[in-house]
């Protein structure tokens, strides 16, 4: 029982909190906002740290669970919110890109299967240097930090 518990915790830690791409990129707390089952679009958020010594850009995202995945930024002008598609988002050497509600976000379009709260969504991030990082984003409501994340 203990071993199962331990394995489970390790697994969750691995899936939910961070992933390493080579040594350059670190993904923090990838998550998808839980939404009603019938929605056509969802948003994914995360922090992406560039630990490398040169600037890179996030140039694309793939997920087998959606018909289309795009990068967007919510831009506010006079309290009007507009979504602007972004081809790539730069991350300075040593810098961090925050994908968060009301700002840059990943738009997940037309789910091929239900996205349930408590589940995960596989995402592959593609960078300008050709590297790819795969993460599992936890599906949860906003404001609920990943419990396991807080323990590190």
């Amino acid at each position: 029982m203990r071993i199962i518990c331990l394995t489970w915790m390790l697994l969750i830690t691995f899936l939910g909190s961070s992933a390493w791409a080579g040594e350059a990129v670190r993904v923090e707390d990838p998550w998808v906002r839980a939404a009603p089952p019938s929605v056509h679009v969802l948003a994914a958020y995360m922090g992406i740290e560039n630990k490398g010594s040169s600037a890179i850009s996030l140039t694309g995202i793939e997920s087998p669970d959606f018909a289309k995945v795009e990068l967007h930024e919510t831009v506010m002008t006079d309290d009007m919110a507009t979504m602007v598609p972004r081809d790539s988002l730069p991350i300075d050497a040593g810098g961090k890109l925050e994908l968060k509600p009301g700002g840059n976000h990943i738009m997940l379009i037309d789910p091929k299967k239900p996205v349930a709260e408590g589940g995960t969504v596989p995402l592959t991030l593609i960078f300008s240097d050709g590297s790819r990082v795969s993460v599992q984003a936890a599906v949860r409501k906003a404001g609920e930090m990943n419990d396991h994340h807080g323990m590190h």
């Binding site: 929605v39 679009v41 997940l108």
Partner: peptide
């Protein structure tokens, strides 16, 4: 609108809170 992935669910989540 329901096809809005970012601002609308964020604001509706806020109203829910």
């Amino acid at each position: 609108y329901t096809h809005c992935p970012d601002v609308c669910p964020t604001t509706m989540g806020l109203l829910s809170d």
